[in-house]
Simulated assay, not measured.
Amino acid sequence: MPPEPAQTPTPALFLDRDGVLNVDHGYVSSWDDFQWIPGAREVVAAFNRAGWRVIVVTNQSGVGRGYYTEADMHALHARMCEDLAAAGARVDAIYHAPQHPQAKVEAYRHPDPPDRKPNPGMLLRAMTDFPIDAARSLMIGDKPSDLEAARRAGVQGVLFGGGDLYAFLESRGLLPSA
């Protein structure tokens, strides 16, 4: 049997979660506390239509700090994905980094977690898991550590300061053409 042809790398939209996809109320861990950022679902759908991969990269130190469990986080992410699907959108993958230098949960304590932003581990893992063209990709974050992770991964980073995410990207000419 001949080998499968290699997939052509495509650009990816990397999104931080809290503060970019949802309002950051501090350690959001349940659907009851989740509130979409205006325009976030529309952004995901626009990048889907344009053929980009959409990947969430989120630190989630609340798991390591013992505020909620990974199961709680996965349940929230499942609800996010269901809600996105209802809006005609999807994410290709969600990467999380529960590790933290001061984690109360021993299994998550690490002095410099390679996946925790500003380290680029989550982005680099996604680039290993999917054929991604880093040079054409985009990371949207709400903290300088998000942009540093993007820089270290060879991805353009954009700092989002709040408001309507779709309008923000549109005003900067960063929405892809379908």
Rank of each mutant, 00 (worst) to 15 (best):
L15Y: 04
R17S: 01
G19V: 06
G19Y: 02
G19M: 01
G19N: 02
V20T: 07
N22A: 04
V23D: 15
V23W: 09
V23Y: 12
V23C: 15
D24G: 06
Y27N: 06
Y27F: 10
V28T: 06
S29A: 14
S29E: 07
D32C: 11
D33T: 12
D33S: 09
F34K: 06
F34W: 11
W36E: 10
W36A: 11
P38E: 08
G39H: 12
R41S: 13
E42S: 07
E42M: 09
V43E: 03
V44A: 03
A45D: 11
A45G: 13
A45Y: 00
A46R: 15
A46E: 14
F47H: 05
R49M: 08
W52S: 04
W52M: 04
W52E: 01
R53M: 08
R53F: 03
V54C: 10
I55K: 03
I55Y: 00
V57Y: 05
V57K: 06
N59W: 00
N59H: 04
Q60C: 00
Q60L: 01
S61E: 08
S61C: 05
G62Q: 04
G62T: 12
G64C: 03
G64K: 11
R65N: 12
G66H: 10
G66F: 02
T69H: 02
E70D: 10
D72T: 00
M73Y: 05
H74L: 11
H74I: 12
H74E: 15
L76H: 00
R79N: 12
E82K: 11
D83H: 11
L84H: 04
L84G: 00
A85G: 08
A86C: 06
A89H: 14
R90F: 12
V91P: 03
A93L: 02
I94H: 06
Y95E: 13
Y95C: 01
A97C: 14
H100W: 01
P101F: 02
P101M: 10
Q102W: 04
A103M: 03
A103W: 14
K104N: 14
K104Y: 09
V105A: 10
V105M: 08
E106F: 08
A107F: 13
